[in-house]
Design a protein around this nucleic acid. Structure first.
Lengths: 343, 343
DNA sequence: GGCAGTTGATGAAACGTTTCATCGCAGGCA
DNA sequence: TGCCTGCGATGAAACGTTTCATCAACTGCC
């Protein structure tokens, strides 16, 4: 028997059936007022009999609040974002909030649309890993007045709270690790050069290279895998060919690994490798990858705290919480004998 | 200047400022009625001046519909689920729906809570990859009368539409591939033995083994990686040790790969391997994995169509759409010389 | 010029809650 | 007995929309 869509019972139906006033039924439901013994019984019976379940939309409208926190991420393909989301989910479940997620696919227009939908549905707070450029979304959030915290990508907009890692320092350290292993020609593979995160990392990269007297290029993966492979091939045939590569996230790392395989280059014999964003498969490939790990749980906790804090005191002065990333050594970095250099 | 949370402009504010009737403002917004030239101008100006944006909650309440489709998945750690979600996201974006996702973590209680939250917020439809057992969630959905489609896991409940792959056939074929390569002792590693999907696969496994006169065991990964490794170790030291392993999903495959590495067993020299659920990293590991691929995009399209159809005709008789999975050969399966056997 | 028909604006009602001022009533005290 | 207190129950108002019946004014036609 297919389920026909019939009218749901309302609180008025409950009240009528229990022969009490509308407000009394509401009081019983919310444990307000001093709920009398006999009436309460009748109301509860009516609720059970009718299978009444409150309408969340009407509640939100009347209460002007929803106990829902929204989260917008570019994608869940990144292991880091997926892990972040699960971390938030855990926290929300324990704090009695519902977490609702939307995907922006890294597209500012889609992001704006999705975020506006959430705002207009009265989420109590918003967690955002913004696409680039984020201005339109930022403006919409600010105009709505909904508390928001920006995660992972530190923009300049002073209206929001941020929780990020210190990308500059993390990349500086990663570069140093490679330089210390004797590498003098590096390659940094990124997806979106304009991204704040990326820019910070490039800055750290350059700084570390400079102070070590080493050299390095930055390569952006545009769209197709083929073009990227060609690009990498060109770099690897250059006179001063890179002996070590840093991948800016796990997706890029995948592309790189495929390209290297196509080019018959073996890690770490022919080239060393290091990856930002610890993919789950880092330790099952050959060789296990050296990675830069994000403190996911700590980031989620900090972001949630900032958000709750702002929900209570909307005028609190915006904060920036910065975590340090951590290198986890695999076996994808080869030591190189340093030729007598001027250093 | 921190954003103070001030009252949002309502449509009444707009009407007043434009000095028109409430309904007129609404008509302009919705393109209803015959919107006059001069008044329309005034209303639009007022909207811009006030930065008015309609309240989605009030709209949902009045319209009794929301243009939001909810989706509940166990996790996004599985590449397959993540891909499904992105496929749905694409479709929704093109069809003018918002997609809101929640995570159940495979926990029926959490799933029920999350799904109830969505139902009560008046989603127009629901896509569910259910946890086990799913009864409570199914009951809640049925009671709400919200159209729903169940994806990936075929339960018996006749109240819903289902879109799945033919797990039995897929597993039968996978087993055959290994048998045909000369393997006579197999191992099937699963996560949740009770899952419908798993049960179907086990059935297909047994059937194929029987008809080929081969043998096979089923091993469930309970919790810890260590225990699992010990379990695998025991199997691999048995007299009739498995020469080929099938992993029921990418997470299990990861655990397996780690265990095999610990045990110093090399694929495909010491043992062959095949994986359900095509992980993104399947082709970058050594050797590239032979996998069973889900037709993700087709599944998402079919599920969406069923959902839309049911939204229009709630009493349509529930359907089951079943897709075939596809084997994609890697290099993780070694051919084995078949000893003279009774076959 | 009168009338039917059309166009376009109007504002009340409804969606399903919560909240709050009000009110009846019982009990206690003078 | 009469009055005050306070407890519990009550139902109207409000949240921000959309919808719809009504109405005023205008057009075209004879």
């Amino acid at each position: 028997m297919p389920a026909t869509r019939r009218r749901r019972a309302t609180i008025l139906d409950v009240a009528r059936r229990a022969r009490v006033a509308l407000g009394t039924a509401s009081n019983v439901l919310n444990g307000r007022g001093n709920v009398g013994g006999a009436l309460e019984r009748r109301v509860r019976d009516a609720i059970d009999a009718l299978g009444y379940v409150p309408d969340g939309v009407a509640q939100s409208l009347r209460r002007q609040t929803s106990r829902v926190v929204g989260i917008c991420v570019p994608s869940t393909a990144s292991a880091y974002f997926a892990a972040l989301q699960e971390a938030f989910e855990d926290i929300a479940a324990h704090q009695g909030y519902e977490l609702m997620q939307v995907l922006s696919r890294g597209d500012p227009a889609l992001e704006l649309r999705r975020v506006e939908a959430m705002l207009s549905r009265r989420v109590d707070g918003l967690i955002l890993i913004p696409a680039t450029p984020p201005e339109a979304t930022f403006a919409a959030i600010a105009a709505s007045g909904v508390p928001a915290v920006v995660v992972d990508r530190a923009f300049d907009d002073p209206r929001f709270d941020y929780v990020t890692i210190d990308d500059r320092a993390a990349m500086r350290d990663a570069t140093r690790t490679l330089v210390d292993a004797g590498h003098r020609q590096l390659l940094f593979a990124v997806r979106i050069p304009g991204l704040v995160t990326t820019r910070q990392r490039i800055a750290g990269y350059r700084a570390a290279l400079r102070s070590a007297g080493a050299h390095g290029v930055v390569v952006a993966r545009d769209e197709a895998d083929d073009a990227f492979t060609a690009q990498i091939a060109r770099c690897m045939q250059a006179r001063a060919r890179p002996t070590a590569i840093i991948a800016s996230n796990s997706a890029i790392a995948l592309s790189l690994l495929k390209s290297l395989r196509t080019l018959d280059l073996v890690i770490p014999r022919d080239v060393s490798m290091m990856v930002f964003d610890e993919p789950e498969w880092a330790e099952v490939i050959t060789p296990p990858l050296s990675v830069v790990r994000h403190p996911t749980a700590a980031i989620a906790r900090a972001a949630w705290e900032l958000l709750i804090h702002r929900m209570h005191t909307p005028d609190a002065v915006p904060q920036r919480v910065v975590f340090a990333a951590m290198q986890v050594a695999g076996a994808s970095i080869a030591a190189r004998r340093v030729r007598s250099s001027g250093r």
